[in-house]
Simulated assay, not measured.
Amino acid sequence: MPDTSNVPRHVAIIMDGNGRWAKERGLPRLEGHRAGAESVRECVEACKQLGIEYLTLYAFSSENWSRPPAEVSALMTLLERFLDQKANEMMKQDVKLTAIGHLERLPEKTRAKLSKAMERTANNQSLTLVLALSYGSREEITEAARSLVKDAVEGRLVPGDVTAELFATRLYTHDIPDPDLMIRTSGEMRVSNFLLWQISYAELVIFKKFWPDFGQSDLFEAVEEYSRRHRRFGGL
């Protein structure tokens, strides 16, 4: 385990490669998603051990709705099972669950289970697990801009009032600190419309392995790499 004196407060992860992991093994894509759920558990446990306060997982993007309906339906079922099975565990581990994105697009049954899990864990404090569901950063930024324009039209602010700090209060993550470290699996070198505003100064660590092969030791490795870097935030 890395030195815990310099760990990120907030880690964000693009969990990529479930489908390719399954394809390599001659399995249906859904088996890759099932295997990926175990990696989520391991990362939560690793964050708890390290004292990381926030873990945001890119679980389902707004673009993912374009996948075949059968796959989308299966993913929603997997999410529901995850919420059913992990709620007790999150209570035992003092993990608070929350979510960002266009949650109203989720099926009614999925939304109900998500709301129940969030309400049940709302007072937990050791770690906040943020699921990005039906999430797209461009949509998030557009909605934030639209809300400021509406306030300006209705006379509640003038252009000079708009600052980066004010803009950030209109984002889904208004009550969550920006990520310090962003991890992506599968070796892809892109951020895929994930937290574009929030990761402006995040440190990036890329793993070639697919998400179902990602475990505690890999998160420890990413944090160790993070601890060796000097964050300048645009300065010297």
Score class of each variant (00 low, 15 high):
I176M: 13
H33V: 13
L157F: 00
R190K: 02
H33N: 08
S227C: 07
V130T: 14
Q85P: 03
Q198V: 08
E63C: 07
A35C: 09
P212E: 13
V130Y: 13
R41D: 07
A99M: 01
N6C: 12
S217T: 09
S186H: 14
T173M: 12
T77F: 06
F214G: 10
S5F: 01
L106E: 06
K209C: 11
P177H: 04
A87T: 13
L196W: 11
L129G: 03
A37T: 15
L219F: 12
P68H: 08
M90R: 01
P212R: 02
R228D: 05
A152S: 04
A145Q: 05
D151I: 00
L129Q: 14
L166D: 06
I14H: 06
V72R: 00
D175W: 09
L157M: 08
Y58M: 11
A117G: 06
A59R: 07
G36A: 08
T56Q: 05
E154W: 00
E154L: 10
K208P: 04
V191M: 15
A87V: 14
L181M: 09
L27R: 13
A37D: 06
P69T: 04
L236V: 07
S134F: 01
L75S: 02
N123M: 10
S217N: 13
W197G: 07
F207W: 11
S134L: 00
A164E: 12
I183P: 03
A22P: 12
G215L: 02
L181T: 11
Y226N: 06
I13Y: 08
R25E: 04
N124F: 12
W211D: 14
F82L: 02
D218K: 05
L195D: 01
E143T: 05
E203A: 11
F82V: 12
R184C: 02
L79W: 03
T163R: 00
A132D: 06
S217R: 07
L131V: 01
R34E: 13
L157S: 04
G32V: 11
D94L: 01
E221M: 05
V11L: 09
E42T: 08
E31S: 05
E24T: 09
L127E: 07
R229E: 14
N6F: 13
A222S: 10
M76A: 10
G235Y: 01
D213C: 04
P28N: 11
T163Q: 02
L27A: 04
S192R: 02
P69Q: 12
I206Q: 11
E63V: 00
Q216L: 14
T110G: 09
M118F: 01
A12R: 12
D180Y: 00
S115V: 05
V95S: 05
H102R: 15
Y226S: 08
S115A: 15
A145G: 11
S66N: 14
F82A: 11
Q49M: 10
L55T: 00
A99L: 04
L57M: 12
R170M: 03
T185W: 00
